[in-house]
Design a protein around this nucleic acid. Structure first.
Length: 887
RNA sequence: GGGUGGUUAGUUCAGCUGGUAGAGCGCCACGUUGACAUCGUGGAGGUCGUUGGUUCGAGUCCAAUACCACCCACCA
């Protein structure tokens, strides 16, 4: 015997219990079953040591909805979870921890440091996993992966070697972005540009052996110790004569050539530019063209090095001040102007980036980008919403090489070995301790690790076993949908597409569903520093996971940022509560369900047909929405159906039958109630998995858990247009009656008689058939059908419906003049509508060009309103006459 | 300098292929009727940023424009 549902909806009673039940029974784990279709999502791996935030909650809710939907549709639905080692941020956290203990990573050494990092990972690594579980994620934990797992490491090495062998990975001296705080190179994508107020300094460089000087403009005077030339535009007449001469660098008095290069803009600054090839990407290019060589003047902390003479040891910003002071004192500083420009910051630690020449490893992107561009253009890869495709294309079309080496320890070590004896560079799948060329054992592996995104870039296939040929890989790859934030397109999405196209020969996923950012109620980004973050776990604790999930997918559209209001979670908790109580009501009224009548004795009544029709109209719409990733639209349709159609109308209409004596009618109502509720639970399950499963488990005659139930499909024989229309008519009538009673302040407890005067038999039958509904839903004590409108005088209030008038005897409450006033307003309203329709119908353009069904609709409206207007006019004149006669 | 998104009820947002504007919250009035006050019933509230255009008809398509966000970009 099953227990009843608890009286009060309290998610805490069952959410955890159900999660374990699903997980323990293996419902999250799909099988490789060639007779079924797979559907695959790879979870974007959160940082292993991170904590769950709203972005994760949004992301994972969407993925879970898709996976549960597909699972119920009969797909082998794989949602593979995992975590990312997040090299730079995890390493920073461990370094910070060491610092607190008074240690540095250098003191500790690589091996000990990695032990610390693994400890850290073990301590905090489980945290986010457990937090995700509270959300209800139905991902396959048996296939969970971590980007630093042994197997993942193998995949990374394999990819590196393959790309290297194809000539797509190379080592070189390039200007890279150096973070003086993280002490590593970072990629262009990891640099955030921010507009900053600064100064443009105009500095005089003397021309050797003359009295003349050339004035250059720079924002970074402290790098002048690295200047290797002054450049002007070859077409610039002002400086023509200086080209080829020697300029003398102030402060250090070093001699540098004046060169001509097209790169220099004549009308910017002074038209003369100092060239610092080791500290500026453009200057680097110029330097290459003119063979200027390199001169580095900053160290890894961003301080001036020994090439800066007496300025050595000064931080770059202090050095700037000091250099400017000295230049001024010595008369070299000609001018200072305010100047704003975009300054690059480290995406992790927000430190200002230092462009610096450095020997690093790069991926050559252009040849890899081409197929990725193609894949989008020919439709193999879709973005939802599509506008992000443009962002994707723009990035790929302007792509630059990707710096992948990091001067960090926590990560995948480069599979690169340097022979100290013969100088050979060996890239190898296996660890080597002997040089394959000179056989020397004096060979060392590169100490650098790879950019985190290099390993996560392989996520869609490395997780399935690549490079090994596994059944999972064969069956589940390529994946179907990727769900992630738009802020991560460049970091991650593009890298996955590129590596997959290169080594798997196809796109890693068909659809990329991009979510917006979850912002606070004021529209600000949630951040730790602002302290405005809302903790999803607290919301789950208070309102339940279902309410939070529903909130995250409704009221916004894909790719758009959303403001988060706790009030909305509350509203959705109320929705869950509504479902809970409706279900409880139903179960209470199903107590005699088993011992009641036989199936074939069932007789569907109008309201049964009405709700079944509405249900079956909705099902294909919901499916369509879900297939198009319109999760919010799907959710609101179910919301409305449950609350309005099912609870407010159907249940209320059916109550008299449940309490009544007619066994067949009761049994029929019970059956329909149960049938509709079951479909609601199924449709809602992806959105609100916990409450729906909990209720499901309490229903009679269920043979499997909801999570693996069959998704509802439209039932053609359950569509009854005529009855649907009839009930809709009854609803309109009931609303009108309620409305007028409320306007006249008639309390619900005061029952009144309703007298209907229908125009025709059809309406008459509808009224008679549904008369009980008026009694329960429109506070009527009695229903009467009359033939003659004129029988009802001043003691009655009248409601004009289509083809029918309702009279309510409310003797004491009626003020005739007010009633006349009301009727006049009614008349005006109808007249306006008729005018509007007339206007349309008399328009030749409309008649000749609009589609027939639209014209017919308008004509019908006209008929309807005209007929109603006649009734109103008739009633109005009667009342006016009666008022007159009464005076 | 390029590009994208937003601008709809007091507020936060929906509104699919163009056909008399919707929801949640808030507000007002009434209501403990045997699922639910985490509720019910009724109501007030919008010239859909502005200006043009296409169309029989535009919140919905096109073009300008304003404002607010965001992204990209090597003018030192």
């Amino acid at each position: 015997m099953r227990e009843n549902l608890q009286k009060n909806y309290d998610p805490k009673d069952f959410e955890e219990k159900l999660y374990n039940y699903w997980n323990d029974n293996g419902y999250f784990t799909p099988k490789v079953d060639k007779s079924k279709k797979p559907y695959t999502i790879m979870m974007p791996p959160p940082n292993v040591t991170g904590t769950l935030h709203m972005g994760h909650a949004l992301n994972n809710t969407i993925q879970d909805i898709l996976i549960r939907y597909k699972r119920m549709q009969g797909y082998e639905a794989l949602w593979l979870p995992g975590t990312d080692h997040a090299s730079i941020s995890t390493e920073a956290k461990v370094v910070e921890k060491l610092k607190k203990e008074g240690k540095t990573k250098e003191e500790l050494g690589r091996e000990k440091f990695l032990e610390e990092a693994w400890d850290w990972t073990r301590i905090y690594g489980g945290r986010i996993k457990n937090q995700l579980k509270k959300l209800g994620v139905s991902c396959d934990w048996s296939r969970e992966r971590f980007t630093l797992d042994e197997h993942m490491n193998k995949a990374v090495t394999e990819m590196f070697v393959r790309l290297y062998e194809k000539g797509l990975i190379y080592r070189g001296d390039r200007i890279i972005n150096w973070c003086p705080s993280c002490h590593t190179a970072i990629s262009d994508a990891e640099v955030e540009h921010e507009e900053a107020h600064g100064n443009m300094f105009y500095i005089k460089y003397q021309i050797k052996d003359t009295d003349e000087a050339i004035v250059i403009a720079t924002t970074r005077p402290e790098t002048m110790f690295g200047d290797l030339a002054v450049a002007v535009n070859p077409n610039d007449d002002r400086y023509k004569d200086y080209v080829g001469k020697i300029a003398i660098l102030p402060l250090s008095n070093r001699e540098i050539p004046v060169i001509a290069d097209e790169y220099v803009e004549m009308d910017f600054g002074t038209g003369a530019l100092k060239i610092t090839p080791s500290h500026d990407p453009n200057d680097f290019e110029v330097g290459e063209r003119h063979d200027l060589g390199h001169l580095i003047v900053l160290d890894e902390d961003g301080r001036i090095n020994e090439n800066g003479g007496k300025y050595k040891g000064l931080d770059r910003f202090e050095a700037r001040k000091k250099v400017v002071e000295d230049l001024k004192e010595l008369g070299y500083l000609v001018d200072v102007k305010e100047h704003d420009n975009a300054v690059g910051h480290c995406e992790r630690c927000k430190t200002i980036i230092e462009p610096i020449i450095s020997k690093q490893w790069f991926v050559k992107m252009e040849p890899l980008a081409k197929p990725a561009i193609e894949a989008y253009k020919n439709g193999e890869l879709n973005f939802i919403p599509d506008r992000f495709g443009k962002v994707y294309l723009h990035w790929l079309e302007n792509i630059k090489d990707w710096c992948i080496s990091r001067q960090l320890w926590w990560g995948h070590r480069l599979p690169v070995y340097y022979c100290q004896s013969c100088g050979e560079i060996v890239v190898s799948r296996d660890d080597i301790d002997q040089c394959p060329i000179c056989k020397s054992s004096n060979i060392n592996q590169d100490t650098d690790t790879l950019d985190t995104w290099f390993s996560s870039g392989l996520w869609p296939f490395s997780t399935l076993g690549w490079p090994d040929d596994t059944p999972d890989l064969e069956y589940f790859f390529p994946t179907d949908t990727l769900v992630t934030g738009y802020d991560i397109i460049f970091f991650w999405v593009i890298r996955m597409v590129v590596t997959s196209l290169s080594e798997m020969g196809e796109v890693p996923f068909r659809d990329v569903f991009l979510t917006g950012l979850v912002r606070d109620s004021q529209g600000r980004k949630m951040s730790k520093s602002l302290g405005n973050g809302i903790d999803p776990l607290e919301l789950i604790e208070e309102y339940g996971a279902d309410a939070l999930r529903f909130t995250l997918v409704t009221g916004n559209s894909p790719g758009n940022d959303m403001r988060f209001y706790t009030e909305r979670v509350e509203a959705n908790r109320n929705f869950a509560n509504k479902l809970w109580n409706a279900s409880r009501f139903l179960l209470m009224n199903l107590e005699d369900y088993f011992k009641s009548l036989r199936e074939d004795e069932m007789k569907l009544e109008d309201e049964d047909k009405w709700i079944l029709t509405k249900l079956n109209d909705m099902i294909p719409q919901v499916n369509d929405n879900l297939d198009k990733y319109e999760l919010g639209l799907a959710a609101s349709k179910i919301y409305e159906f449950l609350w309005e159609d099912f609870c407010d109308w159907y249940i209320e209409m059916v109550k008299t039958r449940l309490y009544g004596e007619d066994g067949i009618s009761k049994k029929t109502a019970q059956t329909v109630l149960l049938l509709v509720l079951k479909d609601i639970l199924k449709l809602l399950h992806p959105f609100m998995p916990f409450i729906t499963e909990e209720i499901w488990q309490h229903l009679p005659e269920i043979d499997k858990p909801l999570i693996i139930e069959n998704w509802p499909t439209k039932s053609q024989e359950m569509i009854f247009p005529k009855e649907k229309e009839e009930i809709d008519y009854v609803k309109v009538a009931i609303k009108a009656i309620r409305n007028i009673r409320a306007e006249m302040n008639v309390s619900n407890t005061k029952k009144s008689k309703l007298i209907f005067v229908p125009d025709n038999d059809e309406i008459k039958n509808t009224i008679i058939k549904n008369s009980r509904k008026f009694i329960t839903l429109a506070s009527a004590e009695d229903i009467e059908i009359a033939e003659n409108k004129t029988d009802f005088g001043m003691d009655y209030v009248s409601i004009v419906l289509e083809r029918c008038i309702v009279y309510i005897p409310l003797k004491d409450l009626i003020d005739v003049s007010k009633e006349i006033e009301r009727l006049r307003k009614e008349k005006q309203k109808l007249q306006d509508e008729i005018d509007r329709v007339d206007n349309k119908l008399s328009n030749i353009g409309f008649i000749s060009k609009a589609p027939k069904h639209i014209i017919d609709e308008e004509k019908e409206k006209k008929d309807k309103y005209s007929q109603m207007l006649d009734s109103v006019l008739e009633r109005l004149s009667l009342m006016e006459r009666l008022l007159e006669a009464n005076k």
